[in-house]
Design a binder for these strands. Sequence first.
DNA 1: AAAAGAATCGAAATGGTTTTCGAAATCACC
DNA 2: GGTGATTTCGAAAACCATTTCGATTCTTTT
Lengths: 341, 341
Amino acid sequence: MNPVTLKQIAEELNISVATVSKALKDYPDVSKKTKALVKELARTLNYKPNTFAVNLRTRESKTIGLVIPVIVHHFFSNVIKGIVAQAEKKGYLVIILQSNESYELEKKQIDLLLNQRVDGIIISLANGTADFTHLKHVLEMGKPLVMFDKIAKIVPCSKVVIDDRKAAYLATQHLIDTRCTRIAHFRGALLPQNSIDRFLGYKKALLDNGLPYDPSLVYICECDDRSFEEGQENARQLLKDHNDVDGIFINTDLVAIGAMTEFNKQGVNVPEDIAIVGFSNWFMSSVISPTLTTINQPGVQMGKAAFKRLYREIKAIKKNKPIAPKVITLETELIKRESTK
Amino acid sequence: MNPVTLKQIAEELNISVATVSKALKDYPDVSKKTKALVKELARTLNYKPNTFAVNLRTRESKTIGLVIPVIVHHFFSNVIKGIVAQAEKKGYLVIILQSNESYELEKKQIDLLLNQRVDGIIISLANGTADFTHLKHVLEMGKPLVMFDKIAKIVPCSKVVIDDRKAAYLATQHLIDTRCTRIAHFRGALLPQNSIDRFLGYKKALLDNGLPYDPSLVYICECDDRSFEEGQENARQLLKDHNDVDGIFINTDLVAIGAMTEFNKQGVNVPEDIAIVGFSNWFMSSVISPTLTTINQPGVQMGKAAFKRLYREIKAIKKNKPIAPKVITLETELIKRESTK
DNA sequence: AAAAGAATCGAAATGGTTTTCGAAATCACC
DNA sequence: GGTGATTTCGAAAACCATTTCGATTCTTTT
């Protein structure tokens, strides 16, 4: 019922609390005899150090914070999984908060985590975040910060990303290679860096191949919980606006699947009439018909990488050896399936 | 940089630490004058109580633990969202761990959380969990425990569930009402209570309507990350085994969608040849073609209810007014769509 | 003016662990 | 036996906030 303390062990053995503590941690200045006695009794009494006291003393909580825009999302839930798994390996626990794509909430969550005195924070920014003082605040407190996916280049912290621009370039190039000449783009919201980069990759691929860039072929979607419907709506609008588009590079798979559903409904054949490349390699992409060509975005891996980096920085700060921010870029690949020729 | 402490405020104002603490907490034995002074200085210095010290003193962490079989799952990620949101409202943070459907891991996670001295634990059991001593251990430590979805009836703790048996009965009845006479069932793994209950509801509906129960019409799937493929495989097998089945009640939407895909591939029409009812109301169910009739399983609501209950029990235990376990059953509904006539 | 009452404050213990530093005990060696 | 080196241990401070209880001051009443 009442947890065992060092004091109880000490009294039982008629030695001091200090010696018990040191015995359990294998300090060299405790004899083998007493070490054995202490350890034995600790085991039988099922002694577990009081985390609160340890935290207070060591000034660390062996806990990290994670702030993401949405939890119910295939990519983000994969990232969670990666972070939690990796953290557990190193004896860290993860507190998860959801910013709901709101800057205000994000600020509040960061505050909560700092108050909780987590050892570090991993974050993927809300779409609406344009001010970064709350993030700089984290760094000023001497806490490591790692951003992933939706990052802010301006914040001097480590980041885990994929080369969105390159991946988008590859995707668009693939459409061009399969004889598409008029290629549209369904892009994400305006602010997030990855949404911008994917757009730039798309544009560059067009120009590098001597194709004109036509802004009227770029459609925006918020990519929130209405993603599928946004895909349908954009597809509908596209068919109204342009009858000559033969390929689309779409910011994310769910939107792409929405678009494909709409095309299917309207008798537009994929890939014969319009070829489609998605982004993220959601598991449903390999399962619908036609299967969706897409860019693989390795969520679990990104989560693991983010924690690994955070862990290194936590250790570094502990040793007063601050570390320079590092941008870790994970490999992606184009996965060719039936939605392109 | 270095967080402000009560001591610093006290020295600045030439009063004692005790008075500062009491002033900030509006104790009646501090004059309005000093209260104002202290609060003013605390604000300008941006004082935040050291959580570690507060935890140690109050013996609570304002943190709860959550153990779920899988994070990357539409239902569970919805539950996470509900729990995290509700917890935040009450000033609680949530530590999430994944048991990976492994009993061994689940036991370890519980241990981790108890060591961390969380104020309570919410859990959905792994499929393989058949021994419950680790859960009873939580209760013996005087920590409240709430189970949801995959529960163990035998453990005397509060539970948040839906009436799986009734829901399954409704689903099957709906198939019968739409003139299905030979109805198969794709059930979940053998151990989980909800998988058993859904099977029993299916069976009872058949018998109540004078239809024979045929065990060969019941197919098992693990409902792990291969759910979609399991749906396809079971559908394939079903077509081989029986040519007279005209309806299926399927344990979960993703499996159902896999099955529908397979039927579609083989030229079997849904709902004309075979009608299908799924379970859980995954958002894709309303989006595929044909849209899937299903049972709504309110993940976010269940999460919220689970935390609310846990919160009540935490408060009760704090006041030494232990509370009797309660089973909270949330309402579900049959959502009729195109996959049934 | 004295006694009783109320208002205001602070010393100190508490929670449990970690770690420094000094003391005591043991051993080795001449 | 004395000197120095080595083991082995424990007192105590530190981490920081909370809370009890006693002490002091001020106000009121008789």
